[in-house]
């Protein structure tokens, strides 16, 4: 299986965008290589802005560029380009409805050895409460390319949640990508697993295991957290009667919470959210951390079976 990271997808898409749209500019705060923005710099040096280790200023500068008709993509680690600059994103970007795109790399615990300070596991929660923001979590490298390109084509602020680790490719090259439209990877009737980011791969594995045991699983890749695909979620709730969510993020306020909000208001069914449970991350190898925090196919299988016992319809 091909292994590539979503940050690579971001960098590759920036190059393509740079070639087709002169309005695209790229900023980074001393993390050009880590965010794969340096590929763009090499080809378009005059449209690349190095901002130094100064994320707050980078956000404002990006807003100013956007207010002048540019389409700025600013890249940094998830922790530095969300919580650290949340007020700048709120006022300079969101309140201005500035057309700024955020390439937020090194999200989740799969950052690995750098540990808690560098593992963004609250960013979905922080970003989805900002009015006007679109929040996208690509599942793999191919989808990251598509999402980055799609982000440039809509007006308004977009948050792209990307990862550092090289991961298996789970989506198809020719699959359509539409912002706000969930990707149904597999139909099923006993329960629905809704996943995003690296957890799509784990969930796909879990679905295969469950199928072998005679449980029919619908698998949804919810790559857009906001605007959320209410239709797909309500349909899944009605047709399968149980929903399990899986994300590499705090369960509080994250993708699972966003799904629960839709389910609760429209078609309440038993739910289970898998994610990080009010803890910080820590140093370790990505796969060790995934096990430590229960972000594995095995845990999804276990929790899916527990969830099925609570099913009422």
């Amino acid at each position: 299986m091909k292994l590539k990271s979503t940050r690579d997808g971001y960098g590759e898409a920036l190059l393509r965008l740079g070639r087709e749209n002169p309005r695209v500019v790229v900023l980074t705060a001393d993390l050009g290589e880590s965010t794969r923005s340096h590929w763009f710099k090499k080809e378009f040096p005059e449209r690349f802005f190095q901002m130094g280790v100064a994320e707050a200023d980078m956000v404002g500068t990006a807003a100013g560029l956007a207010l002048s008709g540019k389409i700025p993509f600013m890249g940094s680690f998830g922790v530095f380009v969300t919580g650290r600059v949340w007020d700048q994103l709120r006022v300079s970007v969101a309140y201005n409805n500035a057309n700024v795109k955020i390439g937020s790399t090194h999200c989740g615990i799969t950052v690995g050895e750098d540990g808690a300070t560098h593992q963004a596991i609250e960013d979905i929660a922080l970003m989805r409460v900002l009015p006007g923001f679109t929040v996208i979590v690509p599942a793999d490298n191919i989808q990251a390319i598509k999402a980055t390109i799609a982000a440039a084509k809509i007006y308004g602020p977009v948050y792209l949640r990307l990862g550092r680790a090289s991961l298996p490719v789970v989506t198809k090259e020719n699959a359509e990508f539409n912002i706000g439209k969930a990707e149904i990877l597999k139909e099923g009737k006993d329960l629905t697993i809704i996943a995003c980011g690296v957890m799509v791969c784990q969930s796909s594995e879990a679905a295969s295991i469950l199928e072998k045991e005679g449980i029919s699983v619908r698998l949804i890749n919810l790559h857009t957290i906001k605007p959320i695909d209410e239709e797909a979620i309500i349909k899944a709730a009605k047709e399968t009667g149980a929903i399990l969510t899986a994300e590499e993020h705090q369960v509080m306020g994250g993708m699972g919470s966003a799904v629960a909000e839709v389910v609760m208001e429209n078609c309440p069914v038993p739910m289970k959210r898998i994610g990080i449970l009010d803890r910080f991350g820590q140093s370790g190898k990505p796969e060790e951390l995934m096990r430590e925090y229960g972000l594995t196919a095995e845990n999804i299988v276990k929790e899916a079976k527990n969830l099925l016992k609570r099913k009422t319809i």
């Binding site: 500019v25 500068t61 807003a63 100013g64 207010l67 540019k70």
Partner: peptide, 30 residues
């Protein structure tokens, strides 16, 4: 800025305006 003609940028949370001004100046040069 989305409400009033002539307002270039929404401000009010102190310290953010000069960064925005830099971005506008960089765009002007580009």
């Amino acid at each position: 800025n989305l409400e009033v003609p002539g307002i270039e940028a929404s401000t009010g949370s102190l310290g953010q305006g000069l960064s925005i001004a830099n971005g506008i100046a960089l765009a002007g040069r580009l």
